[in-house]
Amino acid sequence: MENLIIPKTKQTPQIEFNTAENYLRIIGESYPENAMEVFQPLIDHLELFFGQDKRDLQVELRVEYQNTSSSKMMYEVINRLSNYHEAGHNVRLAWYYPDGDLDLLENCEMFLEEVSFPYDIVPE
């Protein structure tokens, strides 16, 4: 299965989904007008990835800023990951945020409140 690499732009993050080494990284700010255009390819790729055998995936998020359109799509991604984990796959997630930014910490907690997979929220 192919990797999915979506390069960073001024308004969208780098998305790096390495299907051979089982990791997904999303790094950078995200504030496009319509975040579906950025995140839908990732959602489709996740569906393919988890469609086959039992899978492991390590997710790493470093998203300092996201607009509400991106928040909605990020929530979709996280919700799907939670469902995949519940269905027997093995997902782990680490969310890095700038130390001291309580707004971002509050957001991370809100997004991860009900997920089934283990996660760490890491100040840096």
Partner: peptide, 19 residues
Amino acid sequence: QLKQGSMTYEGGAGLGLYE
């Protein structure tokens, strides 16, 4: 709204004024 709202064709999530 984040959990239950749906996304419009234009990419609006109904969250802007809340944010």
